[in-house]
């Protein structure tokens, strides 16, 4: 028996919106720790890892560890039946091939019961070792989102360069080139507006903008984003989900031919 109840149902809607453009189908892993997912995009260039800890739910019951294979697009369709202020309950029984979503309006005057078919999904779980990164940039997630959107109108790739001067995002395309530098700014009174750069070594890495732009669909989950970089390693773009966990995106770099 698996049952979880999330009073802030819009959070699940936002989490699925943050995944659906990257991943088609995924196994959701349910255990006493929480509700988690690890999945790659179809070309195996990017990976998303989601963790929603059990303590973050109003009710969380998971009698044994198991996986539920779901189509993310279908899940997004089902969640469209939920209003933003609805309370969401997800239920599944052992051995069944369906999952039930229940949406309750805050005043309890409307209850929707939605059943969705589960899928058998063959997926590799990758081991991601804990790593020390050469540079870690924390910045407002909206700022990062608008930089990626702006640069993707000019070029297909973004080169992220971290130095003592700050972090520079640059691109080049047929119509021209652009670069945007953000300097460290920790003096702001609002911590969510700060840009903080921790650098052990200068790093320069290039990534496909189409993936990075997809990651910024998670912007509404967190006011800050953390970008962790090391030479010749995938970048990690992390959005913390308050009191619950995180969504982390990993993207392999592009290298010169």
């Amino acid at each position: 028996m698996f049952e979880l109840r999330l009073v802030q149902g819009s959070l699940l809607k936002r989490v699925i919106d943050a995944i659906k453009d990257l991943v088609n189908d995924a196994n959701f892993d349910c255990s006493s720790t929480g509700f988690s997912l690890q999945a790659m995009d179809s070309s195996h260039v990017a990976l998303v890892a989601l963790l929603l800890r059990s303590e973050g739910f109003e009710h969380f019951r998971c009698d044994r560890t198991f996986s539920m294979g779901m189509s993310i697009a279908n899940m997004a369709k089902m969640l469209k039946c939920a209003s933003n202020d609805d309370i969401i309950t997800i239920k599944a029984d052992d051995g069944t091939d369906t999952v039930t979503f229940m949406f309750e309006s805050p005043s309890q005057d409307k209850i929707s019961d939605i059943e969705m078919k589960l899928m058998d999904i063959d997926s590799d779980h990758l081991g991601i070792p804990d790593a020390e990164y050469e540079a870690i940039v924390r910045m407002p997630s909206t700022e990062f989102g608008s930089i990626c959107t702006s640069l993707s109108t000019i070029g297909d790739t973004v080169t992220i360069a971290v130095s003592k001067q700050g972090v520079t995002f640059s691109t080049k395309g047929d119509i021209g080139s652009g670069n945007i530098t953000c300097r460290q700014n920790s003096s702001t009174e609002k911590p969510e507006e700060a840009t903080i750069i921790e650098m052990k070594e200068p790093v320069v890495l290039t990534f496909a903008l189409k993936y990075i732009t997809t990651f910024t669909k998670a912007t509404s989950l967190s006011s800050q984003v953390t970008i962790s970089l090391s030479s010749d390693m995938p970048v990690v773009v992390e959005y913390k989900i308050a009191e619950m966990g995180h969504i982390r995106y990993y993207l392999a770099p592009k290298i010169e031919e």
Binding site: H44, L47, L126, G127, T157, Y250, A252, K254
Partner: peptide, 14 residues
């Protein structure tokens, strides 16, 4: 430009 590497070039199945 450049060659796109795969995430599986870095992380192995666990």
């Amino acid at each position: 430009g450049g060659v796109q590497l795969a995430i599986t070039d870095y992380y192995r199945s666990s």
